[in-house]
Design a protein around this nucleic acid. Structure first.
Lengths: 111, 111
DNA sequence: TGGCTCTACCTTGCGTGGCAAGGTACTGTG
DNA sequence: CACAGTACCTTGCCACGCAAGGTAGAGCCA
């Protein structure tokens, strides 16, 4: 039985990434670091980089290289139009899903 | 890119099953049918039966055979003590996870 | 110059778990 | 005695999270 947090992340992680670059372009290592600060989402490079490639491949993210003030160049990611739609779609799906789980699993009290 | 609903289910489905047998013993086909009524959770036999076996194997569910009023015998599932603990643990994890996602992905407005 | 560390990128290989499809067997019913 | 209905379970495939491993430029310091 896998780690609970790991399987919970499934399906939401990619949209958390989309949301993270929604208002500002970000690069890989930065995204990893930011997720690292969220105990519920902490995901390593081995998760994030393949995820970013996948999102690029399906056309939800776009990327461009930029110099770093110090260190190797960075690949900055930005949301595409399709990415924006996908994120919007997720938001409605998520609310609905969350409510279903709350109702079925609930707090253990009532029905 | 897998179906959105499918990956959302990951990690929560098994606990929805636990919650479903929390107050009353249920059998496989019944569980499949009940999930079928939830658009967000709809899962087929191919998902539920292996899941039930897994939950039995790790000791969260217990089962006993019982005659059906009409048709072949049914295997009824019940929560074990460990299952109850696991469910309780999930409930706190879930609340925390849900809040994190709400905060990060939000509704698209505000920060 | 050479060597060390830091930052940044990416890949490989494994394991878990959802699911469609396929399979077995018992129980009525005409 | 065939046929439909109910109930159980397995096989094989694919997606994806992740630990571990790999490459390379930048900055520093002697």
């Amino acid at each position: 039985m896998a780690e609970l947090a790991t399987s919970l992340r499934r399906g939401t992680l990619e949209f958390c990434v989309l949301a993270m670059v929604e208002h500002e372009d970000r690069y890989g290592t930065e995204i990893v670091r930011r997720f690292g600060e969220e105990p519920n989402l902490a995901a390593s490079e081995g998760t994030i980089y393949p995820l970013l490639s996948r999102l690029r491949r399906v056309g939800w993210l776009d990327s461009k290289w930029a110099e770093s003030p110090s260190g190797p160049p960075r690949r900055y990611y930005a949301l595409t139009g399709d990415g924006r739609s996908a994120l919007a779609h997720f938001r409605t799906e998520w609310v609905s899903f969350r409510q279903t789980v709350d109702r079925l699993v609930g707090t253990g009290e009532a029905a």
